[in-house]
């Protein structure tokens, strides 16, 4: 990576106007993946003066600043209290502490990395993204959004609710990308199922969700059927880490186990 200027933004407004000045200006999150891009940039925009590294809560939601590190996120008592620790757990599975002290929640989301544990982990919850200039978008809409977002992610809003979450990262070793990652939730009595790293970015299994939510007091067979539906509606592909078939098999088992787990 080559950079001409390291720009310490004084405010969001300042950062935004700098970002618009050149297509080769870029926001600096944790900087971990930026390093691997081997591109050259005019300016790296440092957001550390913008106070985006706080976690707060209201009655309805938890608001996570985009510059909150993965480590601060997983350690936050507020985040830990959400959905039986499932959100914090999904982030805790990423690399080591010396990595998570750098990686930011905002950076993990904005990159829309297919292997993202943060994205897959957040998907089965009611999560929206707040941008500067003022704009709000659900996480799912952002994943489906075509093109590059040239505004600044300010915060991630996670709607509170009562219920449980489940997260499974199938992997080779602790430092591996997931072969496939599965997140399942039951919040306010509604089941949601997300599968990521297929190897494409996380997606919700809507047919399966529709089915399982239509069954009153579902049993083992119903969970099995929902898992079957989930893997059928989602696309799985081969890459060097796994065949599509194995991803399919793993996702089926873990969606079922996840549903069983959150139903308890």
């Amino acid at each position: 990576m080559k950079v001409n200027e390291y720009y310490r933004a004084s405010s969001l407004e300042d950062a935004y106007s700098k970002l618009q000045q050149s297509p080769k200006n870029v926001l600096l999150g944790g900087g971990l993946w930026l390093k691997k891009t081997a591109q050259s940039y005019d300016a790296l925009i440092d957001l550390s003066c913008c106070e985006l590294d706080k976690i707060s809560e209201t009655k309805e939601e938890v608001i996570v600043g985009s510059m909150v590190t993965q480590r601060d996120f997983e350690n936050s008592p507020v985040v830990k209290s959400l959905f039986s620790d499932a959100l914090a757990y999904s982030v805790r599975e990423i690399m080591g502490v010396n990595f998570r002290n750098l990686a930011t929640i905002g950076g993990s989301i904005m990159g829309r990395y297919p292997f993202s544990d943060v994205i897959a982990g957040l998907l089965p919850y009611d999560v929206s993204l707040e941008f500067y200039p003022k704009e709000t978008m659900s996480l799912e809409d952002y994943l489906n959004f075509k093109g590059k977002k040239n505004s600044i992610l300010v915060a991630v809003h996670i709607k509170k609710g009562s219920g449980k979450g489940y997260y499974k990262k199938a992997k080779t070793t602790a430092l591996d990308f997931p072969i496939v990652n599965i997140a399942v939730s039951k919040v306010n009595n509604e089941y949601r199922i997300a599968v990521g790293a297929r190897p494409m970015v996380g997606a919700l299994a809507k047919e399966a969700m529709k089915y399982i939510n239509s069954v009153s007091s579902p049993k083992k067979e119903d969970f099995e059927k929902a898992a079957e539906l989930a893997v059928k509606e989602l696309q799985f592909l081969d890459n060097k880490d796994s065949s599509a078939e194995y991803r399919y098999d793993l996702a089926k088992v873990y969606v079922r186990r996840g549903l069983e787990e959150v139903s308890k």
Binding site: T172, T173, A174, L175, D176, F177, K240
Partner: peptide
Amino acid sequence: LNYHIPTHKE
């Protein structure tokens, strides 16, 4: 990241 050696978790 693409050649995995054992870590403390394995």
